[in-house]
Design a protein around this nucleic acid. Sequence first.
DNA 1: AGGACTCTTCGGCACGCGCCGAAGGGACGC
DNA 2: GCGTCCCTTCGGCGCGTGCCGAAGAGTCCT
Lengths: 250, 250
Amino acid sequence: MMNSTHAHGHGPDLAALAGLLADSTRASFCLALLDGRAWTATELARHAGVAASTATGHLNLLVTGGLLAQERQGRHRYVRLADSDTAALIENLASRAPRRAAPTGSLPAVSRSRALARARTCYDHLAGALGVAITRAMTDRGLLDWERGLTITGDGTAWLAELGITLTPTNRRPPVRSCLDWTERRPHLAGTVGAALCLHAFDAGWITRIGTTRAVAITDTGQRALREHLGLTEDSKHMDSFPQPQCTSS
Amino acid sequence: MMNSTHAHGHGPDLAALAGLLADSTRASFCLALLDGRAWTATELARHAGVAASTATGHLNLLVTGGLLAQERQGRHRYVRLADSDTAALIENLASRAPRRAAPTGSLPAVSRSRALARARTCYDHLAGALGVAITRAMTDRGLLDWERGLTITGDGTAWLAELGITLTPTNRRPPVRSCLDWTERRPHLAGTVGAALCLHAFDAGWITRIGTTRAVAITDTGQRALREHLGLTEDSKHMDSFPQPQCTSS
DNA sequence: AGGACTCTTCGGCACGCGCCGAAGGGACGC
DNA sequence: GCGTCCCTTCGGCGCGTGCCGAAGAGTCCT
């Protein structure tokens, strides 16, 4: 038999951390913050459908728990995910969480969620069908290599340079990272390369935000650029084959 | 303002998944199961210090939630983590969870936890100071490459072959994966390579389990093998430098 | 057959915690 | 100055849920 540490022993307090995300309101906050921006307390409260006072309590928990970073400006309390690691953790969790039954969504709600599934930001990189298609195209063209762990190839860095993207190597965050897409159930590209690519797509006018949501629309310039640089056509974004249905976590 | 999905909209039910781990008893179960073995219900109950009936309820939740797989044999209910992805998820969570204050641990308890910190298994690979030291040594010798995501080099695969380890490529699980060690706070090697290496260490008698815990002891053969194959000496296991204090998540 | 053991179901208890509304403090703008 | 807006604290309500012990079903051993 085992040493009976009686559950209250030494190790990491997993329950405390998980408990932060175990409430539907707090989870809703975190998922909303996955867009990478800073939200005010009332925005989050309204988004989750709770009173402002309730939101305050939840935000206190999340901030002291280290999941969120806050910044006070005048009468506003801005809050965002603590760092990209935290974002990755939440993505990771979300991707393996069960789907919530959509409550007979209204017509505009359906159209919104379809836009979201087509192309969206995921913290600081691209996700949805677009994100997955880009990742697949980059793999097909030998810019990414999945053989022995996900890496960017020499061709890949050259390709980035062609686009005018230069990477400043950080030793804190990996250059490329696989992130399981929760609508596509396939991996898309994250890490500093994924972030830089997303930033470039905004700067070069390939994509624009739809309203103030996480969803993005592909512009005409974007269509041309994707075809030119990656050979991506409209229908190639819905192919089902992917070389490596890679590990969800990493 | 945002589209008010009122928290109960469409996306993944993050709270439900997190809720499974948000209870200290269930968390204790999962952490215990990180040793990669199958435990019986009463073993887990005793480990966590709860009644058998309570354990039954928790196990039902974890199994139907998909985190645990069960197998019934006679009057026993064996239960283990669902797969290596689940193990990776829990590791990941545990590594960023706050530490629980050790309640004035007894003398044997302290010695146990020191053994655990020195060398232990983490699901199916090696962790603790030993796991981290092996990972560092492999990096120093050019067997692993962290430059553009963690990969195993050509030299690395050759080195494995020398040890008599051949990898059967699975497309489900990445060959190498970084796993943040929760005692060392540094990455150690996971993935199929990490698992194969750990298995080899047991088979070749480099290490043996200490009792029935997750802790392992390094044998004399093990000491020699580590020096021969990796240049690892006793004190080189406590150096503080590591090339890439890599991303916690992946 | 009988006894020991593992696991499960059930009823009941009690604590925790998420929720709100009302009231108050601080920042901004007119 | 005053009103408005954003956030916070506080008290109180009610549901959810983790816990146990007792009893029962199924398995194994002698």
